[in-house]
Design a protein around this nucleic acid. Structure first.
Lengths: 338, 338
DNA sequence: ATGAAAGCGCTAACAG
DNA sequence: CTGTTAGCGCTTTCAT
C-alpha cells in the first residue's frame, strides 16, 4: 500500500507564497481586500500545488455544504419513464456549471428512505429541489416549514408556501385547441389526465379555456379521462367516439395517450388527420416516430431544471426569498397528425 | 432572522448520557468494545436528542466522504433519452438504501466541466460510477490510474484496467436471431448500431453468432448500419430491402431503429410479421406502443445500476478489488412483430 | 472498557 | 491590508 498522498492544504500554499493561511483563504474565497501583488503570489502557489479547498473542513466552519439535494419522491414511476428526469437533471446541472455546488441525489420510494432523506436534508444540504408526482407527498409538508430552502418541480395540487417552477400546462393545452380550431375542426374532444395531479387538471383547464376562446362550448361529453398511459388513451378514445360520432379532433393530455388514440382510430378505420386530428402533450421522442407523426405540445423540461436552480439559489441568497411561482412557456410542435 | 438552531453534537449526547465524547463516538460507529449498559444509555440519549453525526466533521478526520460520484460523460445525449438514465439511477440508489452513502451527480458535457469533475473526484468522493457512451472518453483514462475506485457502465471499447458491469448485448442479439430462426424465418437481416460503441459492436457480434448457431451464413448483404435513431433505421431497412428481396426478418439493434424499420415496411406495403418479422433491442416503453407491438430484447438496466454499486463497494472495501467484468443476462420479450 | 487530548483543514473575528 | 487565534464536530491514539 502506497502513501495516501494527501492533497495540499492552505498551510502549504501559504508557506510557498510566503504569507499566512488567512490571506490565502481570502484569495481563494475572492475577498477583495488583498493586495494585488500578494494575490498573484498566492494564485501562483495555488496553481503550482494544484490546491483545492477541502470541502469538509470548509463546511465544518461555514455550516454550508455547497450541495443541493435533488429529491425524487417517485411514488409514481410513470413520470420518470420519460426523458423527463434525465432532461431535468441536465438543466439543473447546467445551471450549476461554474459553481462549486454539487447535486446530491435522493430517491425516496419507501417511508424508510423518506425518513433517511429527511434527516439528511436537515443538516447536510443547503437547498432542495423536490420532484414528486403527487403533491400531497409528506415530503412537501416537511419542507414547507422553511427549515431548508426548497423549490418544487411543478405546481403543487394543494397550495403550499413553497415556491415552484412549472411549465405552462394550461397554456399548452389552449394552444392545442386553438390550433385545432384554426384547422377548421368542428368538434374537439379531449382525453384528460388524472385529476389528482396538477398536469392532469391544468391541461384540462387549458382545454376548457381554449374551447371558450374559440367560441365552443366544452360539453362534458367531449371530455374523457385517462391515466397518461397508452392503453388508457385508447380506452378513453373508444368511449368518446362511441358517445359522439361527430368528433373530428382529439387533444390528449400526454403523448402516450395520444398514441393510444391513434391506435383506436386505426382500429375503427378512421384516418388521421383526415377524419380525426390528434394532438398530444410532452413532445417526447416517440411523438416524431408515430404514423402519422404526432403534433404535440412541447414543454421545456431542461429550462425547468435550470429555473429551479435559479429560484433555489435566490432563496438561498441573503434576501432569502424568490418568486413563489415561475411558469415556463410551452409551445406547439406541429407534425402530421393535425 | 431566528436562531439557526444547531443540531445536537456528540458533546451534548455525551453530557446527557453521562459519559465522554469518545464513548459516544464508539457507540455511534458500532465499536463493540463498549459496556452494554453504557451503550444503552448512549443510545437513549442519541434518540432523545435526535442526534445525527456531522458528516463534514467526520470526513475531515476519516478522509472518507461517504459519497459516490455518478459521472455522466454525455458526449452522446442519445443514450440518455431513454429511460436508461433514470432507471440506472434508481437501481444504484436502491443498492445504497440502508447505508449512509450519498450519490453525487456529475455531468460532464464540456472540457471545463470534465476538469471540474476531475478535481472534485480527486478528493471529495470515495468512488465513481462512470457512464459514458464513448469509451475513449478522457475520463476513463484518468480514472484508470486507480487513484479512486471506479466502475464503468458498459464494456469499454478499448480494454482498460477498470472493472465494468454490462448487459449481455451479444447474448441478447443471439436470442433475437434464435427466436426468428425458430419462427421459421429463412432470411434474417440486421441493422447494427454504430461500431464505435460497445453496444453497437456487441449486438452485431451476437447477431453473427446467432446466425452461425442457426446454421445460417451471416452474409454481409444482410448487415446494414444505423446510428440507433429512428430515421437511420428506416434508411438502413430501405437499403437492405433494395439489395435483397428475400429478407423476411430484421433484427434492429435498438427499438428506435426498429420503429424506423416498421415505417419503411409499411411504406413498401409489406406486412409485419406476415412478410417480414421485426425484433428490436432495449424493450423501451415505446416497444409496447407500436403497431404491431414490437418484440424486443430486454436489458436489466436497474440491475446494472445495482451491480455497479455492489462492485464499487467491493472495490472500496478492505480487499480493494472486485471482478473485472460482470455481465447481466438479457432476455427476449415476444410481442406481435415476430 | 473508558476518558483526555490532539488534531483533521478551514474560516472568521480581532488586532494590528 | 495582513497575521494571530480560536474553534467547527468528530475520530483516534494513548493512557488509565
Amino acid at each position: 500500500v502506497s502513501a495516501p498522498a494527501r492533497p495540499p492544504t492552505l498551510e502549504q500554499v501559504a508557506a510557498l507564497a510566503g504569507t499566512s493561511r488567512a490571506t490565502v483563504s481570502r484569495v481563494v474565497n475572492g475577498n477583495p481586500k488583498v493586495d494585488v501583488a500578494v494575490r498573484q503570489a498566492v494564485q501562483k502557489a495555488v496553481d503550482e500545488l494544484g490546491y483545492a479547498p477541502n470541502r469538509a473542513a470548509r463546511s465544518l466552519v461555514t455550516r454550508r455544504t455547497d450541495s443541493i439535494g435533488l429529491v425524487v419522491a417517485e411514488s409514481e414511476q410513470r413520470v420518470f419513464n420519460e426523458p423527463f428526469f434525465a432532461t431535468l437533471v441536465r438543466g439543473a446541472s447546467e445551471a450549476l456549471a461554474g459553481t462549486e455546488i454539487q447535486l446530491v441525489l435522493l430517491l425516496c420510494r419507501s417511508d424508510r428512505e423518506r425518513d433517511r432523506a429527511q434527516r439528511f436534508l436537515a443538516s447536510h444540504i443547503d437547498g432542495v429541489l423536490l420532484v414528486s408526482a403527487h403533491s400531497d407527498d409528506p415530503m412537501v409538508e416537511q419542507l414547507a416549514d422553511g427549515s431548508v430552502p426548497a423549490v418544487l418541480a411543478g405546481r403543487p395540487l394543494r397550495p403550499t408556501s413553497l415556491p415552484y417552477v412549472d411549465v405552462d400546462n394550461a397554456g399548452g393545452a389552449e394552444l392545442a385547441v386553438e390550433h385545432l380550431a384554426q384547422r377548421g375542426r368542428r368538434c374537439i374532444a379531449t382525453i384528460a389526465g388524472p385529476q389528482d395531479m396538477a398536469p392532469g387538471t391544468d391541461r384540462l383547464v387549458g382545454f376548457r379555456e381554449g374551447m371558450l376562446a374559440a367560441g365552443r362550448s366544452a360539453d362534458e361529453s367531449l371530455v374523457a379521462f385517462g391515466d397518461f398511459s397508452c392503453g388508457s388513451g385508447a380506452a378513453a378514445a373508444c368511449r368518446l367516439l362511441d358517445a359522439r360520432a361527430d368528433i373530428d379532433a382529439i387533444f390528449a393530455a400526454s403523448d402516450l395517450m395520444a398514441i393510444g388514440v391513434l391506435q383506436e382510430l386505426r382500429r375503427r378505420g378512421l384516418r388521421v388527420p383526415a377524419d380525426v386530428a390528434v394532438v398530444g402533450f410532452d413532445d417526447s421522442v416517440i411523438a416524431a416516430t408515430t404514423r402519422p407523426a404526432l403534433t404535440s405540445v412541447h414543454q421545456p423540461v431542461d429550462d425547468l431544471g435550470r429555473q429551479m436552480i435559479v429560484r433555489l439559489r435566490e432563496q438561498m441568497g441573503p434576501a432569502g426569498r424568490t418568486s413563489p411561482a415561475t411558469v415556463l412557456p410551452t409551445h406547439l410542435v406541429v407534425r402530421d397528425s393535425s
